[in-house]
Each structure stands twice: as structure tokens, then as C-alpha cells.
Amino acid sequence: MTAALRRHGWSYLFVLPTFSLFVLFTLLPVAQGLVLALQDARVTGGTFIGLANFGTLADDPAFRQALGNTVLYATVVVAAQVTLALVVASLIQPLGARSRVFYRALFYLPLVNSAILVAMVWRWIFNPNPFGLANAALGTLGLGPFLWIGSSDQALLAVILSAVLTIPGGGVVLYSAAIGSLPRELYEAADLEGAGPFAKWRHITVPLLRPTTLYLVVVYTILAFQVFERVYIMTNGGGPNNATITIVQLIYSTAFQFGRYGLASAMAVVLFVMAIVVAIAQFRSLRTDVEY
């Protein structure tokens, strides 16, 4: 052990800077968040109140609404984005090498845009006035006008649509790379068996992509649980009658506008637990022993 440490110990020096930053900016804040969740913490300090903050959350209609909105948003958006990424990547794959590169870049490029700007564009698209793009476009088909973000019944739908209609560039690139590495002999065997393109996609491509799907589902779910700027910009931070309020939006206002750091930390803990439980469930349901 000592010899091994003597031989490889110096290598820990290389890890030390990153590890220190991780401890300082991730691990410690998380630990402090857990402590704050058990306190009536204000900017002046806090007093230990046990699990009372969690009791407050259970009785808080705004939190229950934020929880429901977050779960609904995550469920629809993750399912749609993963499916969309898979379909788009599959459609790109048969193209020539240059075209593939072009489309991958095309779908990935929007990711470099500021999320705030993107949300502002969506705010304009779903503006309930006739100059809103969605209403103008649907108007040409004789539909609408719809109230979109101006109505508590449609605001969350508009926010979800804004996420669903954005092709997830990261997912497309990952799926595209994964599809490219699938063994060709399986497709050749399927060809010999007379399988059509859809059958090959359904029975070869999709099952073999499960590790990629698992990764994307977990990552997109965590991102969806953390939705903030889209809601904040599109619907002024909660929409009519708090129709679009999400957990992170509520954490933000509870901590930085109402000064209740303890309560906000308790919300963050709930979100953290939700993310872990859902991730475990996703790992269990999508885990695979696929090797190729």
C-alpha cells in the first residue's frame, strides 16, 4: 500500500485542483443546502427547526402547483425531446458524410444561443396578440387566435411547446454518433431476412441505442427539473395565476425575493431527491447489457 502510494501518490496532485474546486463549489454548497433546509434561515442567520420547512412545503399550494408543473413539464418535454432527437438522428444517418456533418451542425448550432434570447423569441411567438407568430401562422389556417401565455389554461402548454418544438441538438449529435457506431453486419443480416427500413430501425437501431437513450433521458430529466429561464422570461416568472410556476422558479423567488433561504433550501432538497429517485427508476428500466 505504502509502495503503491509512493509510486502513484504524486498523480493525486493532478487531480487536486479539480477536486478542490468540486469540493468548494459543489460539495460544500450541497452540504450547506442540506443544513439550511433544517433551519429557519434568513440573511442574518438561522435557527434549527428540524423538518418544519418540509411541513410548510406540504401545506403550500404554490409549491404543490410548482411540483405538478415541473413533473408535467419534465414528463412531456423529456419524452418529446428524446424521441425527436432519435428520429432526426435516424433521418440524418442515411445521408452522405458531408450532409450528415452539415445537419449535425445545423441542429447543434442553436445551442450556442443565449437561453434568455431564445426564451424571448418564444415569448414573441406565443404572444396572444395578433402579432404573435403562432397566432399569425395559425390565423392563415383559420385557427385561433389563442391566448397562449396570456391565459392560465394555455400558458404551461405554450412553455412546453416551446421546449418540444426546439430540436435538441445535443441529443441529435449523440444519437447520430451512436448510430454510426452500430455494427453493419446486423443490418446486412436483416436485409437478407427481408426486413424493411422501419423494421430495422425498430428492432435493431432503437434497442442498440438504449445506453445512449438512458444517458439522454437522465440528463434531459435533470435539465427539465431545473427549468427556469424559459418560464421566467416567457411568462414573467410564473404566468397568469401562477400557471407556469416551477420548483426552481419558486426556489429563486423564495430565496432571493422573500429572503427565506431555509425554505428555499428545503425545496432544493425535494428537487434533489426527486432527481435521484427518477434517475434510479430510469436506470432500472432502461439498463441494458447490450454490447457490440
Binding site: S151, S152, G238, S253, F258
Partner: peptide, 22 residues
């Protein structure tokens, strides 16, 4: 000192619910 919480968390949704006719 708690006005912003009363305002944002309770009054605005109540106002919206009334203005929307809910």
C-alpha cells in the same frame, strides 16, 4: 417586510384568477 411575498405568492394569483373570471 413580507409584502413582496404577499404580493407575488398570493395577491397576483388571486388578482389573475379574478380577472380571468375563474
Amino acid at each position: 417586510s413580507t409584502w413582496s411575498e404577499i404580493d407575488q405568492k398570493y395577491m397576483r394569483p388571486a388578482r389573475d384568477a379574478a380577472l380571468e373570471g375563474k
